[in-house]
């Protein structure tokens, strides 16, 4: 039976407050950036429309390419380390009783520390003269120096991020694991499933939702990482730990190249949007590759 639904335009008024909020919080600031990216502004009176010139300029920027690759490698490394590690942590955490509460608090501790403090902690921790980590590595015969060696600096930033954010992944996974009804584990015992089979066919599929959130959050956050490497290495040595945000800040605030910086901001924004879209769709589909290929739940 076909019925025509009554159309009621009054609904627009109900949406209006949200539209206004979003306009002021997101669309208008973004339009300022668009404004800067399309003009060369010397002063409010003197400005020239330059079209796509700034975009063309930043697209050819070799340093930017290097920063982008560095950033992609870093985010990829963050995901490949933090997601499996977080899952393992969650699986190892006690499920019930006071031990569970105690472990939860300990695990969550690093999440409570402000970003710049995290940077400072690791800056001191890694120092070869007074830092526990740095001095120990020196003692063990490694010529470790996050200020002198690019690879060491990069690895230190990665380790710092893993230390800071793996607990988030672990907590999300822990919540996902706790929501699995006991009957699933009981059925698995009856069916004679191995520990790995329980993980592969029960725990992992049931964690899909929280893992998706974890991957997206960790990807976006790590792709925009700024404060911790800024405090720890300042982007150095050389450009070894200059990630996209920092490069952008140098351009906009350091050199006051607002045009190219704005153009690049927009590209940056689109890259994140695109990658999140790809990740999200991939994770929606992985493991549900039904033969009909029409699986949208």
């Amino acid at each position: 039976m076909i019925t025509t639904k009554p159309v009621n335009q009054k609904a627009w008024w109900l949406v209006l407050p949200v539209v206004i909020c979003v306009a002021f919080s997101a669309v208008l600031p973004l339009m300022t950036v668009v404004n800067y990216s399309l003009q060369d502004i010397f002063s409010p009176e003197r400005r020239v429309f330059v079209g796509t010139e700034w975009f063309a300029l930043v697209m050819r920027d070799e340093e930017l390419h290097a920063a982008l690759w560095r950033q992609l490698t870093f985010s990829l490394a963050v995901l490949t380390v933090e997601i499996p590690l977080g899952i393992m942590l969650a699986l190892a955490m006690p499920a019930k009783g006071w031990k569970s509460s105690a472990v939860l608090v300990v695990v969550a501790l690093s999440l409570l520390i402000p970003w710049n403090v995290v940077g400072t902690i690791w800056q001191i921790f890694g120092r070869t003269d007074i830092g526990l980590l740095g001095a120990m590595l020196q003692e063990m015969g490694y010529d470790y120096s996050y200020t002198g060696n690019g690879t060491h600096a990069w690895l230190t930033v990665l380790t710092m991020d893993v230390w800071h954010w793996t607990p988030l992944v672990a907590l999300l996974c822990f919540a996902g694991l706790r929501s699995i009804p006991d009957a699933y584990y009981q059925a698995a015992r009856i069916d004679g499933a191995s520990k790995f089979a329980v993980f592969r066919y029960i725990q992992l599929p049931k964690m899909r939702g929280v893992l998706m959130i974890a991957v997206l959050l960790r990807f976006m956050d790590s792709f925009m990482i700024y404060t911790e490497p800024f405090v720890l290495t300042g982007g150095g040595p050389g450009n070894a730990t200059t990630f996209l945000s920092q490069y952008l800040t140098q351009k906009a605030v350091g050199q006051f190249d607002l045009g190219p910086a704005a153009a690049f901001s927009l590209i940056y924004f689109l890259i994140i949007l695109l990658l999140c879209f790809i990740l999200y769709n991939w994770m929606q589909r992985v493991g549900t590759d039904s033969k009909e290929g029409s699986d949208h739940e």
Partner: peptide, 28 residues
Amino acid sequence: PQQRNIAQVFQFPVIYDTMTVADNLAFP
């Protein structure tokens, strides 16, 4: 339960989401 070789069906359906019906039945 495995050593006793016993089967049990629960109040609410327990299925392995990522498997087909045939794989579910074949799992034990």
